[in-house]
């Protein structure tokens, strides 16, 4: 059930990317998609009543959630940070050149 919720959020992000005209909203759409995926990954590793996978002194490892998706998500967040930063920087530069965020007005390229 919660998986479907993530899918819905993912679809909302995709809708924003496809339908919106403002560049910033498109970037936000991509970020929404990304966070939906992050949540989905964490849910993949979830276990009923599991505890966080941290080893501490004098503790045995029992009934922990799967730590691997969390590690993957950390990497995916870093990649998302890089992509978002680059996208925002590009959007700022485009605004400098064109004076608008509307992608329908940014059309110097043919086709």
């Amino acid at each position: 059930m919660t998986y479907f919720l993530c899918m819905i959020i993912f679809a909302i992000g995709l809708y924003a990317v496809v339908a919106k005209r403002n560049m910033i909203k498109i970037i936000i759409g991509i970020m929404v998609m990304e966070y939906a995926l992050n949540m989905l990954f964490v849910l993949f590793g979830y276990r009923q009543g599991g505890r966080s996978p941290i080893l501490e002194k004098a503790q045995t490892i029992t009934n922990i959630v799967d730590p691997l998706p969390q590690a993957l998500i950390l990497t995916a967040i870093v990649i998302g940070l890089a992509t978002t930063a680059l996208m925002v920087a590009l959007a700022v530069r485009i605004y400098e050149k064109y004076g608008t965020f509307d992608i329908t007005k940014i059309r110097k390229l043919r086709g």
Partner: peptide, 11 residues
């Protein structure tokens, strides 16, 4: 201009 636009689309 063109390069930034193309790059944004590509990205």
């Amino acid at each position: 201009e063109e390069e930034l636009e193309a790059s944004f689309k590509y990205m």
